[in-house]
Amino acid sequence: MMTNYRIVARAERDVLGEGPHWSVRSGTLFWVDIVGQRLWSLTLADDRLRSWAMPEKICWVVEQAGSADLLAGFKSGVADVSLDPFVIRPRLSPEPARPHNRLNDAKVDPTGRLWFGSKDDRDQEASGALYSLDSSGRVRRHDDGYQVTNGPAFSPEGDWLYHTDSGRGLVYRFPLGADGMLGERSIFIQFEQGWGAPDGMTTDAEGYLWIAHWGGGRVSRFDPNGQLDRSIALPATNITSCTFAGPRLDRMFVTSASLKTDGGEMQGVLFEIEPGVTGLAPIAFAGRAL
Results as ranks from 00 to 15, higher is better:
G158K: 00
H163N: 03
L170Y: 11
D159Q: 14
Q190H: 13
F191A: 15
G158V: 05
E192S: 07
T164A: 13
D179E: 00
E157Q: 09
I189A: 14
E157N: 13
G167I: 00
I187Y: 14
S166M: 04
P175A: 05
F188E: 06
A178V: 00
G194N: 15
L182S: 09
W195I: 02
S186F: 02
G177Y: 05
S166G: 08
D165S: 00
I189R: 10
V171N: 03
R173Q: 14
G194F: 09
G194K: 11
L161N: 03
R185L: 12
E192V: 05
L182A: 04
G169M: 07
M181S: 10
P156Q: 09
E184N: 15
A153D: 14
D179T: 11
E192Q: 14
S155I: 00
R168P: 03
H163F: 01
Q190D: 01
L176G: 10
W195D: 11
E157G: 13
S166D: 01
F174I: 06
L176N: 10
P156E: 07
G180T: 06
S166W: 04
G158T: 05
T164G: 10
A153C: 15
L176F: 01
E157K: 14
Y172A: 05
E157P: 03
D165L: 00
D159K: 15
P175I: 05
R173H: 11
G194C: 13
G169I: 10
S186N: 14
I189L: 11
R173A: 14
L176I: 06
R185G: 08
L170V: 13
F154E: 06
Y162Q: 11
G180Q: 14
L182N: 01
G167K: 04
